[in-house]
Design a protein around this nucleic acid. Structure first.
Lengths: 337, 337
DNA sequence: GCACTAAGCACAATCGGTTGTGCACTAAAG
DNA sequence: CTTTAGTGCACAACCGATTGTGCTTAGTGC
């Protein structure tokens, strides 16, 4: 059953069947037949033949000749949280809407994998590359530049290509204010607040820390250095960092600013294992997870606006900005206030 | 800076630079130069030239000539849960290990999108297609067959291609037994248990219901039809179904078998909104989410063995089974007992 | 000195499309 | 009846790689 298809149908086969020529078949299938003065009769015949024979164009051949692959690439740290997975999903559907085929590669926040994935994308001649949450966005932008491919940064900014990111500082400030408000309501205005999660070197984390400190300053509060724990993006790291933090303290901090849902996982796990009630502490999480929201309705979250971010990305692709260092910030939404 | 690359380097350019010929360059870059008796000296010269000029082969041209794209495709319902996202991620890394480029497309559990994505995959001449959680796997398998492309089903089985799925019935049975054991411990052996979530038509849900009933039968319990609510995969649907279910009842069921984490989301949300304590009820969820586990350590979950499933998939790709209807079941792990 | 072998490489066809160009034919105009 | 203007289509070059084949030159044996 699978043996009857030694070859896929080509335009040459169709031309033979329609008693026409490959170039005519090609023109008909591309819709350029009117411009080439192919008769409607022949066009119809070829089209119905292509239909009935189940012809599908070989994209490699098309890409080769047109020097356009029809592919748009994205590199992504991972799929395992709602933020990145919705980025991938929305990117794909937007690409499809524009007649582009989306290819996404996971690079595990590893600069070597990022470059390797970029090399593959360039080898497959993607028309654009969106570089999401890259640890080393500039070296990727350079690779693209050398190949004459337009690239964009998403989520984490770079200097060598336009970037679309969340308004990290402003979002963190608003989330922190919400946390402080709730502390005030509970008459615990001066309780310490712990910032935990993320990478100290990465732009987003630095900005969120800045926003965090700024909000506290606005409320007349100082921020101790030991209350800032950028322990990387990993549940276990957050869990370990919190355990270590708590060894030097008598009680829980009044609230926590948790930088990413993956950190939230480690934090919540540690609190549960240590017998704390989650309601004893006020949480703000920079990132959104509806399952977490279901389990803990009092959890405040900064939900990054993925839909708008992807829209901005495609706008930049459609009309490249004159300034390659353009940085667009998209406000996250604070949920659960 | 980006203007100096009107064209990418080709083997013809390299041949000119090396004062050699395209075929020689090709042989050198492919490592077949010894077989073609190219001198080591020339090979080295060409290789270092390719290196220094940053040559990267045009995969479209290569694919066209070799009649092998080097691409492996996967269609997937969505990325937004840990099960599917880890499938995508592990699939990608395994593909990469084998020198294949992985392309994943989301199809939103929609048969039309599934076929559309398949068409694109076939147009890009994927060498294999893995069809994950497809609502209509057989029509996809047929499309692949007509193009002479090998296809496989993952997660949901089909009749027209080999399938790798979780041992749904056995897993559901074990999860149900764990639920019933815990009910017994709490002296609530005869409390009703609600099965909720999934699609009544889909193979996995049917099998899980069967396993659920079987486990209850083994404990001498009957299962009422109204306690089986396959309300589709969606948080809101589960929430609505539970609300409706509770309108005819005085109190909570003793336990719930929740078919998928997305259903869990709706269930937990409703319970919280309705003021119930989550510990009043025993949960078993068929699917795994570490964040849920962190929030609710007493939550029992059937964690599908993604690593092994993907390994089986690639084994079937490497050595296609004689029987195209082969069905391989992989045991999930019951967590939180 | 000559045939023979092997080494070292280049030529050219090919994969399946796309697209610039031009030929043959018809109909209208002069 | 000839020229002109379209109409309808086919030819052939090309995109950038891969690969079967064959040509040249050097080395070996006799």
């Amino acid at each position: 059953m699978a043996s009857d298809s030694p070859k896929r149908l080509t335009i040459y086969d169709l031309a033979r069947l329609a008693e026409s020529s490959p170039s005519t078949v090609s023109a008909v299938l591309n819709g350029t037949w009117q411009r080439r003065r192919i008769s409607k009769k022949l066009a119809t015949r070829i089209l119905s033949l292509a239909q009935s024979e189940g012809y599908s164009a070989n994209m490699q051949a098309r890409a080769l000749r047109r020097e356009r692959s029809g592919i748009i690439g994205m590199i992504l740290p991972m799929y395992d949280n709602r933020y990145f997975s919705s980025i991938a999903q929305y990117f794909e559907s937007e690409a499809r809407r524009r007649g582009l085929f989306a290819i996404v590669s996971c690079t595990n926040r590893d600069p070597i994998q990022e470059r390797e994935a970029t090399r593959m994308m360039l080898a497959y001649r993607v028309e654009h590359l969106v570089c999401t949450g890259a640890t080393d966005p500039d070296s990727i932008a350079m690779m693209c530049q050398e190949s004459g491919i337009s690239s964009l940064n998403l989520d984490l900014p770079g200097d060598k290509a336009p970037s679309v990111i969340s308004a990290n500082r402003a979002g963190a400030r608003r989330l922190t204010l919400a946390i402080l408000d709730r502390l005030s309501v509970e008459q615990r205005r001066d309780d310490p607040v712990l910032f935990i999660g993320g990478r100290g070197q990465d732009h987003n984390t630095r900005e969120r820390i800045a926003g965090f400190k700024q909000a506290r300053a606005e409320r007349g509060l100082e921020t101790a250095q030991e209350d800032i724990l950028p322990c990387d993006y990993a549940a276990d790291k957050a869990q370990a960092a919190l355990r270590a933090y708590m060894q030097n303290r008598s009680g829980l901090p009044g609230a926590m600013f948790i930088n990413s849902t993956i950190s939230l996982e480690g934090i919540v796990r540690w609190l549960q294992l240590s017998g704390y009630c989650l309601d004893d502490i006020i949480f703000g999480c920079f990132d959104w997870d509806p399952l977490a929201a279901a389990f803990h309705p009092r959890l405040m979250m900064a939900r990054q606006n993925v839909v708008e971010m992807i829209e901005r990305v495609f706008e930049l692709i459609d009309t490249p900005p004159p300034d390659p260092t353009l940085l667009i910030e998209v406000q996250p939404e604070i949920i659960g206030i």
